[in-house]
């Protein structure tokens, strides 16, 4: 008979080996799959995106900014630029890096795939918002534009990605940038967030942890060198002005303060409330499901009972008793309690 101690040891080694293989598998597979050629393709596409971004935002683009953006050496960046030139994707101009029409079309194609994939992740999967960008960075070089078109069609041909960036159309049309940076708003201004910059990741992470999302209405209470203090969805939030520069907003013409928000999750059993709306952070299927259940502005909802576990809570919504989890009822905003129901 096999000695049990030895057997366990061999087993342990196998498990460790498999785990190691699993962890490094992505790298290995990528390395095997990505020949030198593919790597160049990635760099070329990433550089195109960067140059396009510079042009879109009217910023200068240099060899150094390319090297920085792609995290490669200047030598390598020079090679990438040479390659771009040889492919006639950028103009042959030593002073300025500028896209050719061909190059712009290519860049928009890559951007289109990236943004479609982000939208898909946000609307149809349970992936965390912090993972969207990195995942899309990989997919934009992997899936073909036909596949991306099919994916877009299956999720209703979205116009904007979850960060608020417009998705270029199949023919490469893209609308003008609109709005202003959050740190340029004055005290008392009311505006809607239309874009959250997802790079650099650390800043984006901070914005996300503050609960910011595209479609959110905000009112600025205070702005100085230290912080931008604003109120949104009934909560007061503060971010440094540098971070606020990564948030684009569109000011409301009439300075109306957003209605006073109260979350459905705050409703006590027996209380009633009138739905104002669903937070824009609730997207895709989740959002459509809630609306199908009758949660639209104007619907009167009353809290009926709490489950043994404390969550979910059942609500009476348009004649049916429907259980909602806290994570859902937190995203539904209601107006003042209309009246207390006896018992």
């Amino acid at each position: 008979m096999v000695d049990p101690v030895n057997a366990l040891m061999v087993f342990g080694f196998i498990v460790i080996g498999l785990t190691a293989l699993f962890i490094t598998q992505k790298k290995i597979v990528n390395n095997i799959r990505r020949t030198q050629n593919d790597k160049m393709k990635m760099h070329v596409e990433d550089a195109l995106k960067h140059i396009y971004d510079c042009e879109y935002k009217n910023m200068g683009c240099t060899l150094h900014s390319i090297a920085g953006n792609l995290s490669i050496s200047s030598d390598k960046a020079a090679k990438v630029i040479a390659k771009l030139e040889s492919l006639k994707l950028i103009m042959n101009d030593p002073d300025k890096i500028k896209l050719t029409d061909e190059g712009r079309k290519y860049a928009l194609q890559v951007i289109r795939i990236h943004r479609i994939w982000e939208t898909y992740l946000a609307d149809e999967t349970s992936k965390d918002e912090l993972e969207w960008h990195d995942d899309a960075e990989l997919m934009e070089h992997t899936i073909s534009s036909e596949e991306a078109d099919r994916l877009a069609a299956s999720i209703g041909n979205p116009l904007r990605d979850p960060h608020g960036d417009p998705i270029p159309s199949e023919t490469g049309d893209i609308p003008e940038l609109e709005g202003q940076q959050l740190n340029t708003l004055d005290e008392g201004d009311t505006a809607r967030i239309v874009h959250l910059e997802d790079e650099p990741a650390a800043v984006y992470k901070n914005l996300v942890s503050q609960g910011l999302h595209v479609g959110m209405d905000i009112t600025v209470n205070k702005r100085d060198k230290e912080e931008v203090l604003f109120e949104s969805e009934g909560v007061s939030r503060s971010i440094p002005p540098v971070y606020a520069a990564n948030v684009t907003v569109v000011k409301f013409e009439a300075s109306i303060k957003p209605e006073s928000y109260k979350k459905l999750s705050n409703l006590k059993i027996g209380e009633k409330g009138k739905v104002i709306g669903i937070s824009k952070a609730c997207r895709g299927q989740q959002r459509r499901r809630l609306m199908d259940l009758g949660i639209v502005p104007g619907t009167v909802v009353s809290a009926e009972m709490v489950s043994s576990g404390g969550d979910p809570v059942a609500y009476l919504i348009r004649g049916a008793t429907i259980a909602l989890r806290k994570s859902q009822s937190e995203k539904i905003y209601i107006e003042e309690r209309l009246s207390e129901v006896s018992n």
């Binding site: 999967t125 349970s126 992936k127 499901r289 979910p312 989890r325």
Partner: peptide, 9 residues
């Protein structure tokens, strides 16, 4: 990566 939407009547 799979879709998820909770509802319970």
């Amino acid at each position: 990566g799979e879709a998820s939407a909770f509802s319970l009547e």
